[in-house]
Write a protein that binds this DNA or RNA. Sequence first.
RNA 1: GGCGCGGUAGCCAAGUGGUAAGGCCGGGCUCUGCAAAAGCCCCAUGCGUCGGUUCAAUUCCGACCCGCGCCUCCA
Length: 477
Amino acid sequence: MPIVLHDTLSREMRPLSLKAGKSTFGMYCCGPTVYGPAHIGNFRTFTLQDVLRRTLEVDGLKVKHVRNITDVDDKTIRGAQAAGQTLTDFTKKWTEKFHADCKALGLLTPQVEPSAVAHIPQQIAMIQALVERGHAYVSKDGSVYFKVHSCKGYGKLSHIDFSKQETQATNSAGEANDADEYERESASDFALWKSRKPEDGNNFWPSPWGEGRPGWHIECSAMSLAHLGATFDLHGGGIDLCFPHHENEIAQTECATGINGFAAHWFHSAHLLVEGEKMSKSKGNLFTLDELVAKGFSPMEVRYALIAGHYRTSLNFTMKGLEDARSALGKIERGVEKLLQVAGFTKAEFSVPTVMETQTAWGRFAHAWEVLQHDLNIPGCLGQVFTMLADKSELTEAQARHDLSGLGKILYALGLVLFTEVAGPSAPANVVALAAQRWAAKQAKDFAAADRLRKELTELGWTMLDHKDGYDLKKSV
RNA sequence: GGCGCGGUAGCCAAGUGGUAAGGCCGGGCUCUGCAAAAGCCCCAUGCGUCGGUUCAAUUCCGACCCGCGCCUCCA
């Protein structure tokens, strides 16, 4: 059974499968603008794209995942100048940070990660084609604009009728939308090439229209064309990119190539709220992965919290949600451990990617997989996983192995890696000594002393967890 | 104003024309010198409001109320 997914353009559920004669599923995702650390809202989108890719892979498709790096735009140029660095050095630093965060969150590396700066010639070629075909014009200052009214079907993705004048006088930031209309023929036209401005510093490139730099939208059109062709299977991004960015991508690519049908499927993920409010710098609720890790959460817990809601519904990200994620992951781990025991495997033998590649059975997790296949229903799938883990049926060794095969594939699709808990900070010598004393007191049944020592440990910020024949020390939360 | 999304238990969150998955929290029990951890059990006659269709609606239709997103370079 193929995966079905809601498509923003047609507004229908559509199956995802290979086109006739194709061997790979081409997927383009708008990547980060590398001018600072990505925040968890960005990572919700990237993580959901990662789950989609993994789910397609479990379904048996070979996926070519392309996710660009936006390394030239207003923010990167401003950031580099503020940091006193070259644009290259500045964006390299933040690209590396992005990669480190992706790795921590368990995101698979895209097959291609094109840089906008490395595709300037492709962008210029595309703009030239648009000018030649009458879809773009050069303004007095040497900028090039896309002529929206020349593009039949413009607005089809966001379902806006541009034949009527519906553009507001101001945008969401309160800026006049027609600020530089004297350069443009129409307020809805957008920049393909921006002529060199003094504030751009050294960041300009030569072009047939003079020195300047590419507009933002053309970057993605040029890179998707270069790496996936004029048409490909799926395009993804945050819902905010639907208009204008994705609408413009469609217009640019279809008008430049003359081929209709840019992306066959549009996958948009809803936004993240933090503690019930929209994320914004002024509210100070723009969390980065590092900040959450500093609060004591593991990247895997963050991942779980990010995927725990349906992708088309905005998710309220809270500290409570991260704690819930921690408990839920623990529950899955214990369930897997129980299955491993019945199946006669050790934890070390449970390699999820290996299971993914070699096992075909689904056991009792067949239904959970079906739920996931239907519009990437991750919360529904998790619910089904927990239901099955709570099922008390006596299992044979073979049945437990089938369960592990099915559950292993689902965990691969969700990108949940278990048993990764790293040892917490090791206790200082005085704490270790106190713990040893308490254990001795307990063994001697001197419970008054044992209780007193436990209290001392608590005051030092450590918790002692007793077992049958030993104990663990954990830093109190 | 245009386009779109959503309102389900204390919190988070699936789902269905036939009577509400799951996670967290909470409560009870078991275990335990204590404390934890873990296991077991319990926890929405109710799905924003009001109408309509139907043998039957939380699920379909209509109206309304509330919250949210985008509307030219925010994932």
